[in-house]
Each structure stands twice: as structure tokens, then as C-alpha cells.
């Protein structure tokens, strides 16, 4: 019986096309893009919040308190969107996890993000119910 040379075939393919490095390159590129997108979303939300805050400073203080709350929740929505992007990026990054330790650390960080995201969405829901 002639044994099927699985190992040799795989090695040959790997030598012909560096699939691993291509995959790693594209994953890095995509996750970098998503990170930039998340950072941009946060930055735009922050800039909008600061501009709105500066605009309401001339209003009476009672009105300011109410308007500040709506600005804050708009910012929270921006953070929530960025967090969703980041969780997506983390999921893609799991494709190139080198070891169990990294996977555990990533899991903990994703859990932190999910808890934060849950907390923010609860706050937004509460505010929507009140208003």
C-alpha cells in the first residue's frame, strides 16, 4: 500500500503560495482599518459633544442641565458604536491567535467591552423611557 503523502503536499503548497502570511497581512489590514474607524467615530462624537457643550453655555443653567444630558447620551451612542466596531475587530483577530494565553486575555478584554456596551445601552434605554 502506498501511503498518501499529506505532509509533503501541504509543505509544497505552503512553499508555492504563502497562504499564512497573506491571511495574516489581510487580517492585520482589516483590523487596522476597523480600529481607525472606531477611533474616528469616538473622535467625531467627542468633537460634536464639545461643540454642543460650548453652544449651550450661554443658556440658563436649568436648560443646560437637560441639554447636557442629551449631549452626554449622544456621546454614549458614539462610544457604543465604536465598541461594536472594536468587538468586530477582536472577533477577526481571533483568527490569528498564537496561543491559549493570548486567547484568554482577548476574551477578558472582549468581556469588558461587552459589559461596558451593555451598561451604555441600559443608560440610553433608561433615558429614552424617561423622555
Amino acid at each position: 500500500m502506498i501511503p498518501f503523502p499529506v505532509k509533503e503536499v501541504m509543505l509544497d503548497l505552503n512553499g508555492l503560495i504563502p497562504i499564512e502570511s497573506i491571511r495574516s497581512y489581510y487580517i492585520d489590514l482589516i483590523t487596522f482599518g476597523i480600529d481607525i474607524l472606531a477611533a474616528s467615530v469616538i473622535m467625531i462624537s467627542v468633537i460634536m459633544a464639545v461643540i454642543s457643550f460650548l453652544k449651550i453655555l450661554r443658556n440658563p443653567i436649568k436648560d443646560q442641565t437637560m441639554e447636557k444630558e442629551s449631549i452626554r447620551l449622544r456621546l454614549a451612542r458614539g462610544i457604543l458604536l465604536a465598541l461594536d466596531f472594536e468587538i468586530g475587530s477582536d472577533i477577526i483577530k481571533t483568527m490569528q491567535i498564537p496561543g491559549i494565553k493570548e486567547l484568554l486575555i482577548l476574551g477578558v478584554i472582549v468581556t469588558i467591552r461587552i459589559v461596558l456596551s451593555w451598561s451604555l445601552s441600559k443608560e440610553i434605554d433608561r433615558h429614552n423611557k424617561i423622555s
Binding site: 469616538i42 459633544a49 490569528q96
Partner: peptide, 22 residues
Amino acid sequence: FALEFECANAVLKLILVISSLF
């Protein structure tokens, strides 16, 4: 309101942590 800004800050810093981890 200020706390929300700090939260945005921490989310940004998390991006740095994850990228350095990989």
C-alpha cells in the same frame, strides 16, 4: 458628562492594548 469623556478615552486606550498584545 466628564465621566463619559473618560469612558471614551478608556475605549481608545483599549485599542492600544489590543494592538500591542498582537
